[in-house]
Design a protein around this nucleic acid. Structure first.
Lengths: 206, 206
DNA sequence: TGTACATCAGTGAACGCGCGTTCACTGATGTAC
DNA sequence: TGTACATCAGTGAACGCGCGTTCACTGATGTAC
C-alpha cells in the first residue's frame, strides 16, 4: 500500500491500467475515474495526464487489456472441453458467459460503455482476436466449410443476449420463467439442426 | 417554450416524465438529469422533489412509461404481420428490434441502467406485460401447448443479443462479418427445428 | 356568499461533492561533450 | 570520469462545471364554518 518509489514511478502507465481493472472489478463501471485510478496507483491525480489522453484514453487502454482477458477466458474453457466440435463451441460460449458474469464491469466496458475510443488501433486488434475465437469455434458448423455469417451471428447474438439477460434482467420477468434453461440446450437448437441441410444431420432420422 | 402557467403547473409529474422521455431520446442515457428535466418542463430545479423520490424515482417512472411504449411497438408489428404463428412471432421480434434501434435511450434505461428501482410495483407490472407479449408469441411453438421456458429464453436471448450487438458493436468485429443476416433467418433456426421432435417438422424430408 | 386558515406546489439561493483539467513548479533521469 | 544541460515524470494548488439536495420562503388552492 505505502510506496516508497521516489518521484519517478517506473511504469505508471501499466500501474494505472491495473488500478483501473481493479476498480471496475470492485465497483462497476461508475467506479473508475481518473482521480481514483491515480490514487489507487499511489500517485497524484494530475500524473495520468502524462500517460493517457484523458479519461477516454485510460478507458480505451483498459478495454484493450480486457479483451485479452476475454479471449483467454474463452480459450481456457475451450481447451478444458472434450475434443469434439460441439463441446469446443459450447466451451467457448461458456467462457463468454463466465467472463460476463465474473468480470461484469469489464464486460460492460467492452460492450456498453460509450466512453471508449472504439477506433483505437490496439483496441481494434484485441477485439478482433477475441471475436476470431468465437468465429473459429463456429467454423465446423458452417455448411460450406468456410466462415458463415449466419451461424456466427446466430450463436453470437444468443450468447450475448443470454449473458446480458442474466446480468441485467429485472426480477419481474425472471420470476415469470419457471426455470432458466442451460445455455448449452439453447445453443444446440441452432447448431444441431442447420436449416439448409436437414438431411446431413449425423442423428439418424430414417 | 415560454409557459405562462402561474406558479401551479397543473400536472408537473406528467410533464417531467415527458421531458425525461424527450431528453433520453435526444441525448441518450447521460442526458437525463433532474435539473435538465425540470428546465425542460419550464420549472425550477427544486420542483421535482415534490413529485419524485429523487433521480431514481423519476427514472423509474420513465422506465414504466417506456415499457408501455415497448409493448405497443411489439404489438403494432405483430398486428401488421400475416396472420400466421411464424409471421406473428417474427413481427413481435421486429417490434423488439425497432424499439431498441429507434428508442435506444429508453432501451438502455430498461435493460442496462442501474439507476432504476427495479422493485417498483408499477414498473414490474409494465415489464411483466411487455414480456408477456413475447411469451404469447412463442406459445404456438411450445411442444406441449403450454409455455416452454426453453423456447422463450432461446428467442428472447437471440433477439436481445441481436439488438444490442447492432447498437453497441464495435466497428472492428462488425467489419469482420461480410453481411449481417436478417434476424428472421436466425430466428427460424430456433423455431423451425425443435430439437425434441425432429420428425414432426412440417417440411418434407422424406 | 364570505372569510379564516391549512395545505399544497412552486421559487431561488446556497451547500457540498467529485469530477476532469490546467498551471507553474521541481526532482530525477538521460545525454552530449 | 565529470560536468552542463535538456528532457521527462512527477507534485499540489486552483479552476470551473454540473450535479443532487436542502432550506426558508411565498403564492395559489382548497376547505371548514
Amino acid at each position: 500500500m505505502t510506496k516508497e518509489l521516489p518521484h519517478h514511478h517506473g511504469n505508471l502507465r501499466e500501474a494505472l491500467i491495473h488500478a483501473g481493472l481493479q476498480l471496475l472489478a470492485e465497483g462497476g463501471p461508475s467506479a473508475l475515474t481518473l482521480r481514483r485510478a491515480a490514487a489507487r496507483a499511489g500517485v497524484s491525480h494530475a500524473a495520468p495526464a502524462h500517460h493517457f489522453d484523458g479519461l477516454t484514453g485510460l478507458l480505451t487502454a483498459i478495454a484493450a487489456r480486457a479483451y485479452q482477458a476475454f479471449s483467454s477466458q474463452m480459450i481456457r474453457h475451450r481447451e478444458a472441453a472434450e475434443p469434439t466440435d460441439v463441446a469446443r463451441l459450447v466451451g467457448v460460449c461458456q467462457g463468454y458467459l463466465a467472463f460476463a458474469k465474473e468480470d461484469s464491469g469489464l464486460f460492460h466496458l467492452l460492450f456498453v460503455s460509450s466512453d471508449v475510443a472504439r477506433e483505437d488501433a490496439a483496441l481494434m486488434q484485441a477485439s478482433g482476436l477475441a471475436y476470431q475465437v468465437l468465429r473459429d469455434a463456429c467454423l465446423p458448423f458452417s455448411p460450406l466449410g468456410q466462415p458463415d455469417p449466419e451461424i456466427e451471428i446466430a450463436v453470437w447474438s444468443m450468447v450475448h443476449g443470454y449473458a446480458l439477460l442474466g446480468l441485467n434482467l429485472p426480477d419481474s420477468p425472471k420470476r415469470m420463467i419457471v426455470q432458466i434453461p442451460e445455455f448449452e440446450v439453447l445453443l444446440k437448437r441452432i447448431i444441431a439442426n442447420p436449416v439448409e441441410t436437414p438431411l446431413a444431420l449425423d442423428r439418424d432420422i430414417s
